[in-house]
């Protein structure tokens, strides 16, 4: 699949799907996020990068309320997160998340991992949940392992299951928190390929990652963070070809 075909997938120009307004987050006296403003439209793919401790993971964890924010607001699908508990709970169902450490449930089979939330949260019937789960496991090419336990799979396989598990909730937005950082090098590609497939399906994605090749091929915009602030914010060609900020240049020099 070519880079250009991906870059041309539809981005909805209307109301943003996610809108962060002056978001600040403190851990004790440590300022993890400071006055973050960010709009993400449906169909858009954003890559967030930056040195460790720059707040990039915190940023996406604030979107689905894993981290409560201290100032500002996060609006998803027009709902201010946390303002109305039941309304934000319903919106949260549309946000899928993939973690660095996979976080599959070790006491459940791959299939059960994928069926639990649709059944308990969306109230989907067992047979339907199983069919959906198998469809997505098929898509991430791991359906043959459906009845195994997570510990029996490789890291790359586990991460693909984690992606399938999130997709089973039919999310409108997918958050990726360094999905390939805990993987052995030979398994990075299979996970990135899965994410590229997801991008080609038009999924809205916010990915914290250091995979710059992925960013170049898939992202509409790249965000560079440092010390809890968005330092640079540009389409990938500009971001990599002509970075403006000294910190961005220093960061890119180190990782490219």
């Amino acid at each position: 699949m070519s880079t250009t075909s991906l870059a041309q997938t539809e981005v909805d120009a209307g109301e943003p799907l996610v809108s962060m307004r002056r978001v600040s987050k403190y851990f004790g006296s440590f300022r993890a996020l400071h006055g973050i403003d960010l709009d993400v439209h449906a169909g858009e793919r954003i890559v967030v990068c930056g040195p460790s401790g720059s707040g990039k993971s915190t940023l996406i964890r604030c979107i689905n309320m894993i981290e409560p924010i201290n100032e500002g607001e996060v609006v998803v699908e027009g709902v201010t997160m946390g303002a109305n508990k039941s309304a934000s709970e319903i919106v949260r169902r549309d946000i899928g998340m993939v973690f660095q450490q996979f976080n599959l449930f070790p006491h459940m089979t791959v299939l059960a991992n994928c069926m639990l939330a649709p059944m308990k949260v969306r109230g989907v019937a067992r047979a339907e949940a199983e069919a959906t789960a198998m469809t997505y496991l098929e898509r991430v090419r791991i359906a043959d392992q459906a009845n195994k336990f997570p510990a029996q799979l490789s890291g790359g396989q586990q991460q693909r299951v984690a992606i399938a598990r999130a997709l089973c909730m039919s999310p409108k937005l997918m958050l990726f928190d360094e999905p390939t950082s805990a993987l052995d090098p030979e398994m990075v590609k299979e996970v990135l390929d899965t994410m590229i497939w997801l991008a080609s399906e038009g999924m809205t994605m916010i990915c914290v990652t250091h995979e710059m090749g992925f960013a170049e091929a898939v992202a509409h915009r790249v965000i560079f963070m440092a010390d809890g602030e968005i330092v640079e914010h540009a389409p990938p060609q500009e971001f990599f070809g002509n970075p403006q900020h000294a910190r961005t240049k220093a960061f890119l020099a180190q990782i490219l």
Partner: peptide, 24 residues
Amino acid sequence: GQSEAAFALSLSYRHRMRYIVLPQ
């Protein structure tokens, strides 16, 4: 990470305890 993953899947506190945390 287990409760976070369950929370990210929108499982309620009761469901997180019952299906994810307590069995482990």
